[in-house]
């Protein structure tokens, strides 16, 4: 990462710390915002957050690695998550997963070459009454089928 990219991140993290505070309680909100803007939390940002919150970089890394929705490796601009709960499975999520994988040309936990989409499984979304469901970024889509999910990902930027 070059210096100007680092500076952009530093400035953004500075504003986040102003917004959420310098206490450790601010850690998750800060990380969530970085993730939202840059899609993952890079090494440099982790260290900058650690510096500003006065904690150790390895603690930031440790927290990121604990949570399924935080990432320390580069990934796509969009995340498509397929629920893998048994109820969704029984309502066709496996076929949907296969369709997505074929359409995007990637496996799960992989990112398309153009950096558009990362495909993932996730645990129950709390939509079992409207299964199968998928989560595209933070939007939930219920009772999806092969056609509807393919339309959804085609609309992604």
């Amino acid at each position: 990462m070059n210096d100007s990219e680092k500076n952009i991140r530093n400035e953004f993290i500075q504003t986040l710390v102003q917004r959420f505070g310098k206490e450790r309680t601010a850690l998750l909100p800060v990380l969530q915002e970085i993730q939202k803007k840059f899609f993952y939390i890079d090494e440099h940002s982790q260290q900058e957050v650690a510096r500003l919150l006065n904690i150790h970089p390895v603690e930031v890394n440790s927290v990121i690695s604990f949570y399924a929705f935080l990432y320390d490796k580069p990934r796509g601009r969009n995340t498509v998550r397929v629920c893998k709960n048994i109820i969704c499975n029984y309502h066709g999520s496996l076929e949907i997963a296969k369709a997505l994988s074929t359409e995007l040309g990637i496996g799960f936990n992989e990112t398309t070459k153009d950096g558009k989409v990362t495909l993932e499984y996730a645990n129950c979304f709390g939509m079992c009454d409207k299964s199968p469901s998928i989560l595209v970024n933070d939007q939930i889509h219920e009772r999806v089928n092969k056609e509807s999910v393919l339309n959804l990902i085609r609309d992604l930027k």
Binding site: C124, G126, D129
Partner: peptide, 11 residues
């Protein structure tokens, strides 16, 4: 943090 599979009442 309604995470128990099959639970969605809180939603």
């Amino acid at each position: 943090d309604e995470g128990e599979p099959g639970t969605f009442k809180d939603r």
